[in-house]
Structure formats: C-alpha cells, structure tokens
C-alpha cells in the first residue's frame, strides 16, 4: 500500500513536470531565445566585476574566482527555484489575489506543492547552464569539497523557494501585495549579487541571520576555503527555518483565502 502511494506520488510529479516541459517545448523559438539570452545575461553581468577585480586583484580577501563561484552558486540555486518551483512567488501571489486557487483546491493533492511545482520558467535552464560553467571555471571545487557545494546549493534553493512562498502568501494577509512581494524578492536577489567581501560587522550579521541573503553568498565561499561544522549547521538551520516557516505561513493564510470569479485560463 505504502509502495503504491509513493509510486502514485512520483508518477504524479513526473507527469506534472512532463506536462510543464511539453508546454515549454510547444513554443520552441521562445524557449530557445529565453535560455540563450539568460546565459548571455549572466555572463555579461560577470564582465563588469571582471573589470573591477582585474584592477584591484584582491578585495577584502576575495579574488575574481571567489566571485565567479559565488555567482555560479546563486544562479544554480535560483535555477532550481525557477525550473522546478516557479509557482512560488508572483504566480502564487496572483492566484491568491484573484481568488484563483480554486482549481488547485479541487484536486486531491497537496495544495502548496501542486501550486509551487505547477509553473516553470525556461530561462531557468539558461541560469542552470551558466551557473555550472561559472562554478566549474572558478576552480574552487575539488573532489574534497563537492559535498559542501551540493549542500550550499540545497540551502540556496531552500531559501529561494521559502522566500518566494512567503512573498506569494503575503496576499492572504494584506490585499494587493503582489507588486510589493516582487520588489522585495528582487531586493533579496540584488543583495546576494554583490561579493560578500563588501559586507562587514553589523551588515554581515544581518545578512547571515534576519535577512539571509548572505547565507547563499558570503558563507558558501568561506566554507569552500575552510569548512567548519558550526557554520554549516547554521546554514542548515537558516534554510530549514525559512522553508518550514514559509509552509506554515502559507497554510495559516489559506484559511483566510477568498475565492474569486475572474474568468481565466491555465497558462
């Protein structure tokens, strides 16, 4: 029985992603352009920092390969959210804002998982490809620290997904919050995009605790050079708290959900 239930669950997720990718591939040119331009976007963004590091060589102990590694790691974590859990964030916020969660509530599946897995952005594949290129080219990854890399990617993905669930669920509590949530997410993303070496003291403390952008930018680079169990545990704790808290935040909000009558289609 348990095997059947597990099999049915995997079959459902498999079929869901198959449908999502089929929908993406049904618009092939748009798909290819988005992947290609996302790779170009990520590599061009790096060029500016290449010029900076080429001039100063070392900034607060960070070199250009450190920055490449950090960018690659963030982009890979971002792509996991973007490709597999893109429903968390703006899509979820709009469903709640317009009372469109009905379709998901009518299915016998976990509502939150179904919503967050129900969307994907092809550009995320461009992020994934450029992220792998950047991490590999940084030269920081060895067979000895590949486990730490995978752990950091996992924590990064948890933060992106959790943060987006929280922002998407804000509409349960405050009306018309979609735009605010989107801006807050891009603020979070921007904070992860600067080399961790520019933050120090209180700013660094805030970024690795209450506003944990630094957990996926500052700490991973440090851990790739000198891993320590306490920092890794701290990263795991932050990732779990953000993801767990976001799930709780969604389900408490769901009780306040108001269905709507908007005419629409599933895009």
């Amino acid at each position: 029985m348990a095997v059947n239930v597990t099999y049915a669950r995997f079959r459902f997720w498999g079929r869901l992603y198959q449908t999502i990718f089929r929908q993406m591939m049904s618009l092939k040119i748009s798909f290819a352009l988005r992947v290609l331009f996302m790779i170009m976007n990520n590599l061009i963004m790096l060029f500016g920092w290449f010029v900076v590091f080429n001039t100063f060589k070392i900034i607060n102990g960070w070199t250009f390969p450190d920055f490449m590694f950090m960018s690659g790691l963030i982009v890979i974590s971002f792509s996991i959210w973007s490709v597999f859990f893109r429903g968390a964030g703006i899509y979820m916020a709009r469903l709640i804002e317009y009372g469109d969660l009905d379709t998901y509530l009518l299915y016998p599946k976990n509502v939150l998982l179904h919503v967050i897995c129900g969307q994907s952005d092809p550009a995320g594949l461009g992020d994934l490809i450029s992220g792998i290129i950047l991490v590999t080219a940084s030269g920081l990854v060895t067979w000895g620290n590949i486990g730490i890399l995978l752990f950091c990617i996992l924590i990064g993905a948890c933060l992106f997904v959790g943060f987006n669930i929280i922002l998407g669920s804000l509409n349960f509590y405050v009306k018309d919050c979609t735009d605010f949530g989107e801006r807050l997410f891009y603020f979070f993303l921007n904070m992860t995009g600067y080399p961790g070496c520019i933050y120090d003291g209180v700013a660094k403390l805030i970024l690795i605790s209450v506003f944990p952008a630094g957990v996926i930018s500052i700490l991973p680079v440090e851990q790739m050079h000198h891993a320590d169990a306490i920092t890794l545990l701290w990263m795991g704790l932050i990732g779990s708290v953000v993801l767990g808290g976001s799930i709780l935040f969604f389900y408490i909000g769901l009780k306040r959900y108001e269905s709507g009558n908007k005419i629409g289609v599933k895009l």
Binding site: T103, G264, V265, K266
Partner: peptide, 10 residues
Amino acid sequence: GQRSQLWYHL
C-alpha cells in the same frame, strides 16, 4: 464555467 483546468498551449 469561467475557469479552466486545461493547459492552454497543449
């Protein structure tokens, strides 16, 4: 009547 459970492009 106003909602769809069908995937638009498929």
